[in-house]
Amino acid sequence: MRVPERRRGEALVRAIHEAALVEVAETGLGALTMEGIARRAATAKTVLYRRWPTTHDLLIDALAQAYPVEVPSPGLDDLRGDLIAALTLLTDWMQTLAAGAVLAIMSERHRYPELTDDLYRKVFDPRGGTFTTTVLRHYADHGQVDPSRLTPITTQIGEALVFKLSIDLARQPTADELAAIVDEALLPALGL
């Protein structure tokens, strides 16, 4: 019988993060335990406690690592394409275990307000808040978009419409629908 190779460093952290996301998907936030995560990651519970004091700390760390980052085109020559790419990144991410864990947190924000606060403070806010904000700020910083147009409403339009269509259609928006969100709502709201 072959003994599995012992994981260390980043390989072990990735396994623990994945185990935490799977555990939330299968058991829910209320039943999330260090024991369950450790068992799923095939490691000792003490390994988890050395790095994360609570399951919520571990979960937030896993979400921070799994949350995608927008990368606007460096040439500042395709705002429309960069916005569509950001919304595509969102729809791809919405199909992941991390998105399911975020949904679990948001669904139970009344039970876990500190966890929700940490989600915003440690995961969403450092990346700009929404999936189009990084692109919009990049273009605004370089004079391509009027910064005064980047309001709490305009920076959420794309994301909000993706969520609305996903709920209404019971599926992810298509590439054409994402382009329509950009062309018919987001760009006009920016005065472009």
Rank of each mutant, 00 (worst) to 15 (best):
T151N: 14
I16Q: 04
A179V: 11
L119S: 02
S107V: 01
E159P: 03
T27R: 11
A101R: 04
T33W: 08
R8W: 06
R50A: 11
A85Y: 00
P152G: 13
I60S: 03
I16Y: 01
V13K: 02
D168N: 06
A20P: 01
L83Q: 06
M34I: 15
E18A: 12
R8A: 01
L83R: 04
A64Y: 01
D168F: 02
R7I: 10
L119I: 13
A31I: 08
R40T: 14
D92R: 13
W52G: 01
F163E: 13
V71H: 11
P152T: 07
L178C: 04
Q172I: 09
R14I: 05
D183T: 01
L83N: 05
R39D: 10
A41R: 05
D183S: 13
T155K: 08
L83P: 08
L161H: 12
L59C: 03
P74C: 00
A99P: 12
D82K: 11
L12K: 07
D141A: 09
L48K: 03
L178H: 03
L63F: 02
Q172A: 08
A64M: 08
R109L: 08
T151I: 02
G143D: 04
W93K: 02
A11N: 03
A86P: 06
T116K: 12
Q156S: 15
P53H: 08
D176F: 08
D176C: 06
R2M: 10
L136F: 09
E159A: 04
R50N: 14
L63K: 02
G143Q: 07
L161R: 12
E108M: 04
D82W: 07
R137F: 05
D82F: 07
G36H: 01
A19M: 02
H138F: 13
R40I: 10
M1V: 08
I181C: 06
R8L: 04
L63R: 03
T174Q: 03
R39Q: 13
I157K: 14
D125I: 15
E177G: 06
S166Y: 10
A85Q: 07
A104G: 03
A66S: 14
G30S: 14
T27E: 10
A15L: 13
E108K: 08
F124N: 01
K45G: 03
L90K: 15
F124A: 12
G81E: 05
T33C: 04
Q144N: 04
L103P: 00
L79F: 06
L63C: 04
D61L: 06
F163S: 05
A170W: 00
E18H: 14
A42K: 09
L115D: 09
T155P: 09
G9R: 07
G30K: 12
G30R: 15
A44S: 10
R40H: 11
G75V: 00
G128F: 08
A42S: 12
R109F: 11
A11P: 00
V102N: 00
A85M: 02
L89R: 14
H56I: 02
